[in-house]
Amino acid sequence: MIAVELRKLVLSRRTWVTILLIDALPTLVGILLAVTDIGPRPGTGPAFLSAVLTDGTLFPLAALGIVLPLFLPIAVAVTAGEAIAGEAQQGTLRYLLVRPVGRTRLLVAKLVSVMVFVVLTVLVVAATAYVLGALLLGSESVSTGATSVSGTGLSTQEMVLRTLLALAYAMLCMLGVAAIALFLSTVVRAPLSAALGTMGVLVASTLLLTLDAAHVLQPYLPTRYWLAFVDLFRDPILWRDVERGVLLQAAYVVVFLGAAWANFMTKDVTD
């Protein structure tokens, strides 16, 4: 079933259009930076962007920093929100279940397909940004290795390791989003409602983070530690927020996937 879901993902034109659109923003940013040579002042703007003008190899990281907080979660909310509700609306859900595809198996396949979509997007964005960075942006510190956010030097090997850690962390955050959207997708009839509901949760969470009065809630909000991946590039690595983020996202994943499973197993499929 997983293989079938992946084929559907790859065969769908929308998958590629979405990835292209997501990829367009960092590409535009890269071109603007290269043409105007005006970077954000250090410490402002998206992570790593200020360093990009001097070191183009950092641009993939900067591009992910641009995409991760907003574009990717929206894409995940839409894709995962579509998972069950989309099949139901199309009428294909009943034929899958009668085929028979076990309900648990279907949920797992859908989740895997969403995560593959995330990986695919991240790879495309990183690859485009790498090419763009190498061709258009600064290439000063290529030989001496990258610089950490704290200002000390990092070897290329260290940098690769930390980038992979950061990607893994970002995936976990997106898995949290996917779990919420998948749960909503088993509840509502229209895929759009599931996607909008998920985005609603994320927007509310982001808003509450800026509100001092919501202080007690903040450690439990899904987006609270999303940007903690930047801490992985400090020297030494600042683990505190990353650890909390991992625990929090794991909790969200377990709770919402559990709820999605429980709801879907006992659901009357009447679409």
């Binding site: 769908s12 199309q90 294909t92 034929y95 085929r99």
Partner: peptide
Amino acid sequence: VEGPASYPQLSGRTNLALLDASG
């Protein structure tokens, strides 16, 4: 059940192949 359903962007043959492969 209640009318046919398939993935509209795919051909009939691909639809049948996907359904056959899923279970």
